[in-house]
Nucleic acid binder design. Structure first.
Lengths: 147, 147
DNA sequence: TACCAGTTGAGAACGACTCTCATTATCTAC
DNA sequence: GTAGATAATGAGAGTCGTTCTCAACTGGTA
């Protein structure tokens, strides 16, 4: 009935999880796809998307919406943490600001929502983008893959 | 050169802005489109998308990524505030938790990013969704337009 | 009035993601 | 081992949100 009721850790899925755990840079699904194809060349895009969804729904990965546009990003670091996102190049760094529990508790009392979690996204300019002249447009130029 | 260097507040754009200011529910672009067509029937989707982009880049609206999937949401409330999002129905409520400035300042010192802002997204279940049995799937059923 | 930058709508194009379905792999008895 | 059931897979089509292109139009301005 519900998907992933008995998920198997098949070689394909293992490969996706391995890529994610080796990627501290919050890759998009298509970046994961590209990287997985180096170790599992025949894997299809649908399998990568399905596996990422499975990993998220089983708590082995986080799906992030970092406001840098269209595509979701994935994070194998499932401990609670926040994100610092560069507004120009989109680079995201893990941080943990330790938001006081009292702040979150206050929301529970004033809204009658049941709170399940939170994510603090801090926006800014990374050192690279501070240094280079601003174009007003996204510029991930300094993020070339370092081989 | 840069777009919106001399943006005019044309009747079309005025209509989009009016709709947004009359919508406290963080509509998606296509929801804005539907609502605008009631007052400006001939308006095209491209104009709505362009206008929303213009409003965001001129600081008259905020674009939100509330993690409820694919589409961006827009908010005419441009004062600093946070969002409380229902994980099941996607409803988003404005809140302001007043994150201590000291927390954000700490990031500046430890990361060498220049901080320009932040958004705290609190996740939970709204009262409606707590009451109805969970399906594990998004269920905006109780969000029918109230005429 | 004529000019011209800015604006518009239609539709094509695009990218991210999901679905479908026939095939293949894996698990669980025997 | 084998057989049968169930789950996983890849290719490709489909969907959806958004952006692009371009010819026509509009509204200030000289």
């Amino acid at each position: 009935m519900s998907p992933y009721a008995h998920p198997r850790l098949t070689p394909r899925r293992r490969a996706v999880l391995d890529v994610l755990r080796a990627s501290p840079d919050h890759p998009t699904a298509s970046e994961v796809y590209d990287r997985v194809r180096e170790t599992a060349p025949g894997i299809g895009a649908a399998t990568v998307y399905r596996t990422l969804g499975m990993l998220v729904s089983t708590g082995q990965a986080l799906e992030l919406n970092l406001g840098d546009g269209v595509s979701a990003r994935y994070d194998a670091n499932v401990t609670r943490h926040d994100h610092l996102v560069c507004e120009r190049c989109g680079r995201a760094v893990d941080v943990d600001l330790g938001v006081p529990a009292a702040l979150v508790d206050a929301v529970t009392r004033t809204t009658s929502f049941t709170i399940t979690g939170y994510d603090l996204q801090v926006r800014g300019l990374c050192p690279h983008c501070q240094a280079s002249p601003g174009t007003g447009h996204p510029d991930p130029g300094h993020l070339e893959k370092e081989h």
